[in-house]
Computed example of a mutant assay.
Amino acid sequence: MRDPLFRMALVLGLLSAVGPFAIDMYLPAMPQVAQDLGTTEAGAALTLTSYFIAFGIAQMFYGPMADSIGRKRPLILGVVVFIVATILAAMAPTIGWLIVARAVQGLGAATLMVVPRAVIRDMATGPAAARMMALIMIVISISPMLAPLTGSLVMAWGDWRDIFMVLAVAAIISLCLIFFALPETLAPGNRRKVQLSAMSSGARRLLSDRRFMGLTMIGGFGMASFFVFLSSASFVYTRQYGLSPTGFSIAFAINAVGFFSASQFAARLAEKFGMERVISLAITGFAGMTLLLTMIVWLGVDDLPVVIAGLFLANACLGLVIPTAMVMSLDPHPDIAGLASSLGGTIQMLTGGAMIALTGPFMQNSSATMVPAIATCALLAWLAAALSLPRLRLGTA
């Protein structure tokens, strides 16, 4: 705990975990939400979709704001919005109310995705930044293990509304962390006024940067694979394999173990082999593993242990990809780190949402449709890497 970068990474990780908890803790409650509010499963799923869309769009605003007024105030604003929206969600009398409340919740939670990345860029670059990002990924990745189980526990003595009240308490704790444990990392002399012309110029610079866009899309399609899993796993695990909400939570959690375990080696491997080589090998492993699992499932070997094991190995590769791609995309743009973080985050979230929409009509609540959809995202991530990373294009991964 004497290492200031470690302490900062821990604080940022705790803050960043609030958004994932707002997603994953809610998953076991979706059938109860549909029944309680008199809607269909598709209607209940819209509460997830609205959160993702708002979360993605809002990142475009927090990044420039963080570059203009510092890192702390955008965090405070976003968390306050999140708290209010979470309380409104707990009070929702209709599905429409809940969909809107979830969207506003996403607007607030977006700050906890954008600003921590910019704080990391303020404090470190290269392997040191990758190490900080990996530490944050520990906390974020633990949330898919703990959040559904926590949601199931809350539902054991309450209902889905109590889940939102627990989230509100967690957000209040986060607000205290921002006030008392997080220093301002952007000096006044390095702040940039919010100017549409400057934002437009910065956005054009980033969008025309082949490497930035390639790395962003690698992360975007990688995250999309998880979003596809997120939107379908509860139905596949409970309907095809007959798991209870608690059983689903445990199976869901196992998939996160491979991701966060591997992410802790990202910085060490980057120092030894180079960041580009690590991401090239990892994205190839991710695509290869998901394609292999697709073939196995289509051959009729679709038992639950096989699916869980295959996704575990694939997510281990993805755990090396995501933090490395994030750091590599921001490193060349220290003067517009906030804008780069928000634009990259927005593109990635919208990519994830688009993949859910594109694969949704083909889903049949079975592993035979879920696994190929995940593999499609993985293959697209590999193609983005092939187009943007010289090492992979030249076949020297």
Rank of each mutant, 00 (worst) to 15 (best):
M1C: 08
M1L: 13
R2I: 12
D3R: 03
F6S: 09
A9F: 00
G13E: 05
G13A: 10
S16G: 12
S16V: 12
G19V: 14
F21Y: 02
P28A: 13
V33I: 15
A34M: 07
Q35I: 12
G38Y: 06
T40R: 07
T40P: 03
E41T: 13
L48Y: 15
S50V: 14
A58I: 06
P64W: 10
M65I: 14
M65L: 15
A66L: 04
R71L: 05
K72L: 07
R73M: 12
V79H: 05
V80E: 10
F82Y: 15
A85Q: 09
L88G: 03
G96D: 10
G96H: 10
I99G: 04
A103T: 09
Q105V: 03
Q105N: 04
G106Y: 09
T111N: 06
L112A: 11
L112V: 13
V115C: 01
P116Y: 05
R121V: 00
P127I: 00
S141I: 01
S141W: 00
M145N: 04
S152P: 01
V154T: 05
M155G: 08
M155T: 08
F164R: 10
A171Y: 04
A171E: 06
L175K: 06
C176I: 14
C176W: 11
I178E: 04
I178V: 15
P183G: 06
E184P: 05
T185A: 10
L186T: 01
R192C: 13
K193G: 14
L196S: 11
S200D: 03
G202E: 14
G202L: 05
L206R: 03
L206G: 13
S208D: 08
G222D: 06
A224Y: 01
V228R: 09
F229C: 05
F229S: 05
L230K: 06
S232L: 07
A233P: 01
S234A: 13
S234F: 12
T238Q: 15
Y241E: 04
G242P: 10
L243Y: 02
L243A: 07
S249T: 09
A253Q: 07
V257T: 08
F259P: 09
F273R: 09
M275N: 13
R277Q: 11
I279A: 00
S280K: 03
A282W: 00
A287N: 01
M295A: 14
I296H: 10
V297E: 06
L299P: 02
L304P: 11
V307G: 02
G310R: 09
F312Y: 03
N315R: 07
N315W: 03
A316L: 06
V321Y: 01
I322P: 00
P323T: 00
V327L: 01
S329K: 12
P332Q: 09
P332C: 08
H333D: 04
P334W: 04
D335V: 13
A337D: 02
S341I: 00
L343I: 07
G344T: 01
G345N: 07
T346G: 07
L350R: 09
G352I: 01
A354D: 02
N365C: 04
V371A: 07
V371W: 05
I374D: 01
L379D: 02
A381P: 06
A385Y: 01
R391P: 02
L392K: 04
L394R: 15
